[in-house]
Design a protein around this nucleic acid. Structure first.
Lengths: 121, 121
DNA sequence: CGGCTGTTTCGACAGCTGTAAAGATAGGCG
DNA sequence: CGCCTATCTTTACAGCTGTCGAAACAGCCG
């Protein structure tokens, strides 16, 4: 269980937010992805993992930066994992987490069109 | 009360998700924005409003596309309004809602860097 | 085996989602 | 002018989901 279980990207439909309105099915899939990001702790976890770029970040490096207990961090990592936003590889005693760029790209590309409606300044 | 009450964009810091890790304060502000989008109904509402591009969408046009009651739609619109993602202008009996592109852009730009770590295809 | 790392299970608490009923605002008609 | 209708919002309340921590469990190394 070191790979993502599910993924809203499975629909293979990079439908933008504007122009063709989202169907209820597409909205549900995307909402699941956004829901995983809609939490300060998970957003910060994602940020810490992404900041390493190379990717491999040990969980022990993550827990030290929060005021939360170990199990709670593990829970949030599981949510991100099941959303397909990160993957965890076990290397001996430690487990290293990595970002899944395509999943993040899908979410970003959904918001981008609506953000570019008439903004310029 | 026809304008957005608050906005995570108030921080005026378009901090990307990668490189400089998010602080707890930035993460909390951004999470509030994502939380407003992390719902199938709100995502679809946002999509319907954005699809009109011109912007002005009457609430009566929105409720007809859902299996939800009026008050529920109004509640979700309020959430989006308080998140600063949309604005509502009253024109007589009807209220027309409009997208706030800059708010959507802020969210999209947060995910973009992490999505562009090594993805290319 | 003993210690370490990370996860899972279980329970409590807070917050969110949805509906019904009542309240505010604008326009039409007798 | 008074009252009604229509649109949208707010309030109050049931049901559900999500967040968090203490304790217990699983994988790895010396």
């Amino acid at each position: 269980m070191s790979n993502q279980e599910i993924g809203f990207g499975d629909r293979c439909d990079p439908v933008p937010l504007a122009r063709p309105a989202l169907t209820a099915d597409e909205a549900a899939a995307l909402a699941a992805g956004f829901k995983a990001v809609a939490d300060p702790t998970r957003l910060r976890l994602l940020s810490l993992i992404a900041a390493h770029a190379g990717g491999e970040v040990c969980v022990c490096d993550l827990t030290s930066g929060f005021d939360l207990s170990g199990p709670t961090i593990s829970h949030h990592l599981k949510v991100l994992r099941e959303a397909g936003l990160i993957t965890g590889d076990r290397r001996g005693t430690w487990i290293y987490y990595r970002i899944v760029p395509s999943a993040l790209a899908t979410l970003a590309q959904v918001l981008a069109p609506a953000a570019d409606l008439e903004v310029s300044a």
